[in-house]
Write a protein that binds this DNA or RNA. Structure first.
Lengths: 167, 167
DNA sequence: TATTGTTATACTCTATAACTATA
DNA sequence: TATAGTTATAGAGTATAACAATA
């Protein structure tokens, strides 16, 4: 349990961190705003999925998801095929141009972060990722614990996963 | 220096953390959106200041600051008095109703965070605050957090990125 | 009747540019 | 000429509600 002053400070930091997010947003290609980038990223990490699943991972309303998905589909970065198991659903899948776009996004954000965090240790970056992941978990999103088998240890060990269903 | 996979993961976490921000935003009073709350919070922490200083602390354009400030001024939460030293400037100051509003904001966000972070240790919350503060600093915002970085006075050098606050 | 997804509408936040009034 | 601040405009993100098609 933390003190009130700490909670106030955390709230302030959460508010202020959006400046960093905006900075990252500025390096995106003109026709790929952050909403589109998030769609591509999640499809790249989690593989094909339905709209509802993507909405859950994005932690936004499905109407919002629908708009973002339409944007990336219009540009040919994903395909929406009917779900044979449920004709109401559509399966989203990255196309080859979509993967290329995703690579470009990754390249740009990595480049910016590598520059900005030049003096951060690997451990410190890892600690920040871990704490942010845990923060999201504490806020009741069972979403996006990436489970990328690569280098990111984090995620699971600390996730405290409440069983609550997101809004 | 961290690895590419770590940078990608950090970018993803930064994107996803906005869900937490939105959650915090939902508990705000109807006539006090997050922009207004940020204005009140910064005035409460840093004391009276000019528009330009507030814009710097908010890390947004002055035009945006102007709108937020107009909103809170319309509701009587702050006063804008002319700066005797420079008639172009206006000094912003919290009013008593403004402090009351700020107290209410603090009460609500603290309550929500206390509930969500019930199983977090004081130290972990502190570590997260510290790392988020450092992240912002690494992204070139010279803004300070009084509680953690006591050393950043008003007249900071505007030199982006040379100012670091390892806390 | 409930669920998946789309669309229409509205609100907030942000940046750019044009404008004023001072410096 | 340059700076502090305002306003107009436009673009992006999000939520709610109404709707279609299917379960």
């Amino acid at each position: 349990m933390a003190e009130r002053a700490q909670y106030e400070e955390l709230a302030r930091q959460l508010s202020a961190i959006s400046a960093v997010k905006r900075d990252l947003g500025r390096i995106l290609p003109a026709d790929c705003p952050s909403g589109s980038a998030a769609v591509l990223t999640l499809l790249g990490r989690h593989g094909d999925m339905r709209m509802s699943k993507l909405a859950e991972l994005l932690a936004v309303d499905m109407s919002v998801t629908s708009r973002h998905v339409a944007h990336v589909a219009d540009r040919g970065w994903i395909e929406r095929s009917p779900d044979p198991a449920d004709k109401r659903s559509r399966i989203l899948r990255l196309t080859d141009p979509g993967r290329a776009q995703l690579d470009e996004l990754s390249r740009r954000s990595t480049e910016l972060l590598a520059e900005r965090l030049i003096d951060w240790s690997d451990d410190d970056v890892g600690r920040l990722i871990q704490l942010m992941t845990r923060l999201r978990a504490s806020f009741g999103d069972c979403r996006s614990t990436p489970r990328l088998a690569q280098a990111a240890p984090v995620a699971e060990s600390v996730a405290h996963r409440t069983t609550r269903t997101p809004a």
